[in-house]
Simulated scan of single mutants.
Amino acid sequence: MDSQRSDINEAIQASGEATLEQATKKAKEKIDSFFNVRLDIAVTGETGSGKSSFVNALRSLKDNDEDAAPTGSTETTTEPTPYQHPTMPNVTLWDLPGIGSPKFKAKTYLKNVKFDRYEFFLIVSSVRFRENDIMLAKEIKKKKKLFYFVRSKIDNDIKSEKRKGIDKEKTLSKIRTNCEEELKRIGNPNIFLVSSWDTSEFDFEKLIDALRSGLPQSKKNTLLQSVPVYSVAILEKKVRMFQKIAWAIALISGAIAVAPVPGLSFSSDMAIVGSFFTSCYHSFGLDHKSLERLSELVNKPHLKSLKMSSLVAEFIKMSSLRLGASALVEFLCSLVPVAGSAASTAMSFTATRDVLLKGLDALAEEARKVLREAGLE
């Protein structure tokens, strides 16, 4: 029992607050933002630049998936079109019409696409950045919002140059230099070379790091949750993020356990435990659609046949048994004034934390195995 009380005291101290009540309030705010904060991302570029494919890649979808943004060689986007993330309804990517089209003139573009709606802008080009792209970036800069230049279809350029005997590194260097030359009037622009087909290559991970660096903490977490896992580095960042949330959830569990209401602590714990494991499962890329896309990316068809869907159910069942046993003792303790309440708080905190971290570790290890199998260690 002393070690359990020490655990919760350590958690309170780590929160930066002086009391359980204050720490719990902070934890509730953190969890609410983690699961619910909105993130709206604008993706724009000229016709044929690959912006719709890029929107799909950020949503872990293929261009031919049912909910994918339509792609084509002609302008398929005539209005700002929202595309929800398939597993995170609070994240929306907006496929914007190309700047300079008849309905979206450069001078009035930001007003017509509702500039204030978006957290930042991704300006996509597959050949070269043009005057309209530069004009748009300058206007965004004036309004003190962030923008990033994305040079797409890099895989196509490498294949084309390889046929001429030019190797990958020289091609990438040449493209980066050309982009910097085209955009030198912007100052020191953020330029990222990406392939929407293969987000494990080139600058995709650097782009995600740059996007996160410009966001407030709550939205950093939302973005990190939503991006596909095609490297161990991204996976481990996600694991650390979920570890912090597990401690916040455990703090709330401890606070609820004080109330002498039969079943309250258990039902509250199970609801959030289910949400936690489900979020891990999707964020780590263990769902069927993510595995299917990964299997095509690395040309390993057996990956799509992996059955991971039962993992969440197993962890929820395990949690139910562990937390159910703890809940009865917590309830009996909560009936005892002062000392009993403190004991029930410590027990609930420790039980919930241990269940969440054990399940998180197991899901993370499965994701590591998938990356190893895919050759993306």
Rank of each mutant, 00 (worst) to 15 (best):
3 S>N: 10
3 S>H: 05
5 R>C: 09
5 R>T: 14
7 D>S: 13
10 E>V: 11
28 K>V: 15
29 E>H: 08
39 L>Q: 00
39 L>I: 01
39 L>E: 01
41 I>P: 02
43 V>K: 01
44 T>R: 00
51 K>H: 07
61 L>Q: 03
62 K>D: 15
66 E>Q: 06
73 S>K: 11
90 N>A: 10
93 L>T: 02
96 L>P: 03
96 L>R: 00
101 S>H: 02
110 L>V: 13
112 N>P: 03
112 N>K: 13
118 Y>N: 01
120 F>Y: 06
120 F>N: 04
122 L>C: 09
127 V>R: 05
131 E>D: 08
134 I>L: 08
137 A>E: 00
157 D>F: 14
166 I>A: 07
170 K>W: 10
179 C>G: 08
187 G>E: 06
195 S>C: 11
203 D>V: 10
204 F>G: 01
205 E>Q: 10
209 D>Q: 14
212 R>Y: 11
215 L>G: 06
217 Q>M: 15
217 Q>K: 15
218 S>I: 05
221 N>V: 08
226 S>F: 05
228 P>R: 01
231 S>R: 03
236 E>Q: 11
241 M>C: 10
241 M>P: 12
247 W>Y: 15
253 S>R: 07
253 S>N: 04
253 S>G: 15
256 I>E: 03
258 V>Y: 12
259 A>S: 15
259 A>K: 14
265 S>D: 13
266 F>P: 06
270 M>T: 10
271 A>L: 09
273 V>E: 02
273 V>G: 01
275 S>A: 13
285 G>I: 03
291 L>Y: 04
297 L>F: 08
301 P>S: 13
302 H>D: 13
305 S>M: 11
308 M>Y: 07
309 S>K: 12
309 S>E: 13
311 L>K: 04
312 V>N: 01
312 V>K: 01
319 S>R: 01
328 L>R: 08
332 L>C: 13
332 L>Q: 07
336 V>I: 15
342 A>L: 15
342 A>H: 14
343 A>I: 14
343 A>Y: 05
344 S>A: 15
346 A>P: 07
346 A>S: 14
351 A>N: 12
356 L>A: 07
359 G>A: 09
363 L>P: 03
364 A>L: 04
368 R>L: 11
371 L>I: 11
375 G>A: 06
377 E>P: 10
